Amino acid sequence: MSTETALETSPVRFDTKIAVLLREGLEPWQRLNVTAFLVSGLGSQLPEVIGSPYEDADGTPYLPMFRQPVLVFEGTKEILTAAHTRALSRALPRAVFTADLFTTGHDDANRAAVRAVPRDQLDLVGLTVYGSRNAVDKVLKGARMHP
């Protein structure tokens, strides 16, 4: 077996985890939108999560993507609030998406909507966290894998 084939079939266990936690009951378009928004900030602040650029057999270049899977979970509003508190207490890199952001139309309005609400009153519908596997697992306690 060639080295390239071995690399393609060998499972990789990452020391870190990228996780998105969504509040249950969101519409399908909301789940997709929230997930996309939440993970968009990771690469700009944490370059280590981004792999190398892609290229097809014809040499057409493509943008780099995360170097590891993004795991998506769901839970109740209470689980989301508790996860947010645990992520803060562990100082994990995180992003939030609040219900207010469904009514805004651009980036400046999004930031203003979050800035207007105290941390313990945020109406969270999504949270992303990145960190060591153990720390992220503890943050997500009570959440379940998204179906």
Rank of each mutant, 00 (worst) to 15 (best):
S2V: 05
T5Q: 14
A6E: 12
L7V: 00
L7I: 01
E8H: 08
T9R: 06
S10K: 13
V12A: 05
R13E: 10
F14Y: 12
T16G: 02
T16L: 05
T16S: 13
T16I: 02
A19M: 02
A19W: 01
L22E: 04
R23S: 05
E27R: 15
E27P: 01
W29S: 01
W29H: 03
W29Y: 04
Q30A: 13
Q30R: 13
Q30P: 03
Q30Y: 05
L32R: 08
L32F: 10
V34G: 00
T35Y: 03
A36E: 10
A36M: 11
F37L: 12
V39L: 10
V39E: 10
S40R: 10
G43E: 08
V49S: 06
S52A: 10
S52G: 00
D58I: 01
G59P: 02
G59F: 07
T60L: 07
P61H: 07
Y62H: 11
M65N: 04
M65Q: 06
F66M: 14
F66Y: 13
R67Y: 00
Q68V: 02
Q68S: 11
P69C: 01
P69G: 01
F73K: 09
F73R: 11
E74Q: 14
G75C: 05
K77S: 06
I79L: 02
T81M: 04
H84F: 15
T85V: 14
A87R: 03
R90Y: 05
R90M: 12
A91I: 04
A91H: 14
L92R: 06
L92P: 07
P93H: 13
P93G: 10
V96T: 15
V96C: 09
T98N: 07
D100C: 03
D100E: 15
D100N: 15
T103P: 01
T104Q: 12
T104P: 10
T104V: 15
A109V: 05
N110R: 12
A112Y: 05
A112H: 08
A113H: 13
V114R: 08
A116V: 11
V117P: 06
D120Y: 05
D123K: 14
L124H: 06
T128W: 04
T128I: 12
G131L: 14
S132V: 03
S132R: 13
N134W: 09
N134D: 15
V136H: 10
V136S: 09
D137T: 15
D137C: 11
K138Y: 06
V139T: 15
A143P: 01
R144D: 08
M145L: 15
M145Q: 09
M145G: 13
P147V: 09
